[in-house]
Simulated assay, not measured.
Amino acid sequence: MPTESPLLRPYRDGSLSLPNRVAMAPMTRGRADDDTGVPHPLTSLYYAQRASAGLIVTEGIWPVRTGKSTPGVPGIATAEQVAAWREVTTAVHAAGGRVFAQLWHAGRVSHPSLIGEQTVAPSAVRAEGRVYVKGGWTGTTTPRALSTAELERLVEDFATAARNAIDAGFDGVEIHGANGYLLHEFLADNTNLRTDRYREKIRYPLEVTEAVVAAVGADRVGYRISPGNPENDLVEKDWPALYRELLGEFTRLGLAYLHVVGTDEKVFPEVRPHWPGLLVGNLHQGPPSGREDAERLLEAGLADVIAFGRLFIGNPDLPARFATGAPLVQVDKQLHYGSALKGYVDFPAVTTTRWPSPVPA
């Protein structure tokens, strides 16, 4: 008899009790109403289809309009947005799932055409590369440095968004502090050129986290990091020391979990000794399935749960497919993003026939 995969073992420790160790990673899908930031009516079905994940972390959700990164990204700042998310959480819970809302401010990785004003960041440093806007890709722009007072207000905006998420029925929130976006920009050497108190790199991410914890409780708060990740043109010269300091503060706060994006094989061995709680590992640049690497990470004790992203698009019942050895669907990247419904809720589960037939584009 084959040995059960460690991915299928329950996780029960701390504030979270999960039926398996297969989390659904946050993935931008671009299906929200671009004007109102309200999730698409089929978003509740999309997440409910994937409720067998040990934990779902939603796509990034902006707490304020300046945090929007690309077309079709939803918000959680208005009553209409909260009401739509409540339909999502109700559907996920009815299907037996657990779901956290990811709070995401894109910082300089946005465009004036998306947010109606100049982009914002810790410092006025333009990112190399391109951003996606209505109509396709375009060059980045130079952001405006947020004032100290603006940053203080944004701390409260994060706390309000967290309260909105709990009001919408989410089990908790994940603060996105990774992948070159606003909170990560404070940690980087080339994007934090400030002269006020926020020149201390960990200070602003910590203030945001403390405010969110005060708003909803530490047992409802996770945080996502990607140490040493150069994505979106960031430079962290001495990330091990930086993140040891940050994780010491997060340990003091007693967060529900830490979500670690590993873009380098050294990340997990460096982070694990400094984080005593639930560690969700994300093999960001791994192979298409990543199962073997994920199982090795669990068996080595370097992570407790593994977050899978793209695999959950075409395989809504991913834990069952791992359990039964069913084939894994690899989805055309053209279907990952955009307003078309094709590629959103039209991938059937192999273990049930209750989901609808494919939706036309």
Score class of each variant (00 low, 15 high):
Leu247Asp: 06
Gln285Cys: 03
Leu234Glu: 04
Thr36Lys: 02
Tyr11Ala: 02
His274Lys: 12
Thr36Ala: 07
Val350Cys: 00
Gly177Val: 13
Ala214His: 04
Arg86Tyr: 13
Pro319Arg: 08
Asp233Ala: 06
Val280Tyr: 05
Trp275Ile: 06
Gly67Val: 02
Arg108Gly: 13
Ala349Glu: 08
Phe308Ile: 07
Glu231Tyr: 12
Thr28Val: 13
Lys333Thr: 11
Gln49Trp: 00
Val260Tyr: 12
Arg12Asn: 09
Ser52Cys: 14
Glu270Trp: 10
Ala349Pro: 02
Ala218Gln: 08
Gly172Leu: 12
Glu128Lys: 10
Ser110Pro: 04
Val216Cys: 08
Ala48Asp: 00
Leu151Gln: 09
Lys333Tyr: 10
Thr195Lys: 05
Gly254Leu: 05
Thr191Ala: 14
Val125Trp: 03
Arg12Pro: 03
Ser226Glu: 00
Val359Lys: 01
Glu299Ile: 05
Arg98Thr: 15
Ala25Gly: 03
Asp219Trp: 00
Ala307Ser: 01
Ser289His: 15
Leu55His: 07
Ala84Glu: 05
Gly254Ser: 08
Val212Ser: 08
Asp171Glu: 09
Thr195Gln: 11
Glu117Ser: 14
Leu278Arg: 01
Asp167Leu: 13
Tyr257Met: 14
Ala79Ser: 10
Asp34Tyr: 06
Leu258Cys: 01
Trp355Ser: 04
Arg194Cys: 11
Met27Glu: 09
Arg65Phe: 11
Glu156Leu: 15
Gln285Trp: 06
Ala95Gly: 06
Leu114Thr: 09
Met24Asp: 03
Gly107Thr: 02
Ala161Leu: 13
Val212Thr: 10
Ala215Glu: 12
Gly301Met: 05
Ala256Ile: 04
Gly75Lys: 11
His105Gln: 06
Gly139Asn: 12
Val221Thr: 13
Gly107Gln: 03
Val133Arg: 03
Ile175His: 06
Arg244His: 10
Gly281Lys: 09
Gly67Ala: 03
Ser357Asp: 08
Gly107Ile: 00
Gly262Tyr: 15
Pro276Val: 11
Lys266Asn: 14
Pro230Trp: 09
Asn315Ala: 09
Ser5Phe: 09
Gly180His: 00
Gly136Thr: 14
Ala84Asn: 06
Ala79Cys: 12
Glu270Leu: 14
Gly314Asp: 07
Pro6Gln: 03
Leu258His: 04
Pro143Leu: 15
Asp317Met: 03
Arg98Met: 11
Asp33Pro: 15
Val261Asn: 12
Asp346Leu: 06
Asn20Leu: 13
Ala94His: 07
Glu80Val: 10
Phe158Leu: 10
Gly217Cys: 03
Lys134Pro: 15
Glu4Arg: 09
Ala361Trp: 08
Trp137Cys: 05
His111Asn: 14
Leu311Pro: 12
Val64Glu: 15
Leu283Gln: 07
Asp157Glu: 15
Ala340Phe: 09
Arg354Tyr: 15
Val82Leu: 04
Pro26Ile: 08
Val350Phe: 06
Ile166Asn: 02
Ala94Leu: 07
Gly254Lys: 00
Glu87Trp: 02
